[in-house]
Amino acid sequence: MFKKLIAESTGKSPWLFHINAGSCNGCDIELVSVLTPRYDAERLGFKLTGSPRHADIVVVTGPVTQQSLNRVLRSIEQVPDPKCIVTMGSCPQSGNVFRGSYSVAGPLSKYVHVDVDVAGCTPKPEAVIDGLYLATQILAEKRKEMKK
């Protein structure tokens, strides 16, 4: 009974931790706008937390600059399993317009397995919610694998 409860509620209360890897803040304000009354992600249980230890889903924005690389990797490493990594906007997936610059350390997928990409140069909040919803389902599966 206890196991079933845990398995069922893993997807129902995904807590987000937002890492800004040098983004132009376009995606950052879009991510926060997801929690405002109009789109209200909280009804699905989303909540922004302050420390990676509390997080289930890590949302990365920005083209992972050289400076922020090891800080991002360190924070992601500190998130307890089962965890999901969601990249928001084009920058983390490919470096977008900043690709090839001396200070961009390349797409995030070079260092960490990215679970869900939400494309769009500032994707719409509905798209972000879809992405996060998909991430919660992946979380549930990861929980099952972890259990085995």
Binding site: V118, A119, P123, A127, L134
Partner: peptide, 12 residues
């Protein structure tokens, strides 16, 4: 259409 969510790179 703004639903551009992908788990694999090819979807994009």
């Amino acid at each position: 259409d703004y639903h551009m969510i992908a788990t694999k790179e090819e979807d994009l």
